[in-house]
């Protein structure tokens, strides 16, 4: 599956990240794992929303076979 990062997170993850999961995992844990790889502060957890295959989900959502996960900081369109 492909992980997409946007807005402020793009500074640390300029390109999408590919991962494979052998067993279901919470999207929040996947995000934490990525933050850890870049030694980033976990405070990002407080304001990032998650989307699985273009649908907003809670951090507790378990994923295994989805196409993509997006980590979405507060939006500011308009």
């Amino acid at each position: 599956m492909t992980l997409y990062f946007f807005s402020i997170l793009k500074k640390y993850f300029p390109s999408p990240v590919e991962i494979d999961l052998n067993e279901p995992k919470r999207v929040q844990d996947i995000f934490l794992e990525q933050l850890g790889k870049k030694q980033l502060d976990v405070s990002y957890l407080k304001f990032v929303r998650y989307a699985v295959d273009c649908e907003y989900v809670s951090g507790d959502t378990l994923v295994k076979d989805c196409r993509e996960i997006a980590f979405i900081p507060p939006v500011s369109g308009g």
């Binding site: 402020i8 500011s76 369109g77």
Partner: peptide, 23 residues
């Protein structure tokens, strides 16, 4: 739209434009 749609304003550089962040 301003609260739900994944679109972001950025400043002239690559930094997030904080003044325009809604949440």
């Amino acid at each position: 739209l301003k609260h739900e749609v994944p679109i972001w304003k950025m400043g002239e550089g690559a930094q997030e434009c904080c003044a325009h962040t809604t949440s």
